[in-house]
Simulated scan of single mutants.
Amino acid sequence: MSALLSIERVSKRFGGLTAVSEVSFAVPEGAIYSVIGPNGAGKTTLFNMISALFPPSEGAIVFDGQAVHRARTHQLARLGIGRTFQNLAIFSHATVVQNLLVGMHHALKANLLSAALFWGPARREELAARRRVEEIIDFLEIEHLRDLPVGLLSYGLQKRVELGRALAVGPKLLLLDEMVSGMNAEETEDIARFILDIRDELGVTVVMVEHDMGIVMDISDRIAVLNHGSLIAEGTPAEIAADPAVIQAYLGRN
Rank of each mutant, 00 (worst) to 15 (best):
H69V: 00
A128G: 09
W119Q: 07
R83E: 14
V23W: 06
S92H: 13
A94T: 11
L46N: 03
L46P: 05
E8S: 11
L112S: 13
G30D: 14
I232C: 02
Q75V: 06
R131M: 11
L202I: 06
M179C: 01
V133L: 12
G42S: 05
F139E: 13
R253M: 05
E58L: 07
A3V: 06
P55V: 04
I142Y: 01
I195S: 02
A122M: 06
G235C: 03
K109V: 07
R199S: 06
K43M: 01
V246R: 01
A110P: 14
S154C: 07
R222N: 05
I240D: 00
D147E: 15
S220P: 02
M217R: 00
R199M: 04
L231D: 02
P28T: 07
R130L: 13
V246S: 00
E239G: 10
E234Y: 01
I219R: 07
L5M: 07
Q98Y: 04
G120H: 12
A60H: 15
N87E: 15
V216F: 04
Y250T: 00
L108P: 11
S220D: 03
L152H: 13
A128P: 09
S154Q: 11
A249L: 01
Q75M: 13
L174I: 08
S181M: 02
I81N: 08
L46K: 00
L88E: 14
L202Y: 05
M208R: 03
F91G: 08
G235S: 07
L173Y: 12
F14S: 14
A89W: 08
R131G: 07
A3K: 11
K43W: 05
Y155G: 06
G214K: 02
L173H: 12
G156K: 04
I223P: 00
F25P: 10
I195D: 00
P244S: 00
G252P: 00
G65R: 13
N39V: 06
S2T: 13
R72N: 14
V20P: 14
A238V: 11
L152Y: 11
N111M: 11
G156S: 04
Q75A: 14
V10P: 14
A185T: 03
E29G: 11
R131W: 06
D177W: 05
A31K: 09
V180G: 02
P237T: 01
G151F: 14
T84V: 03
G16W: 08
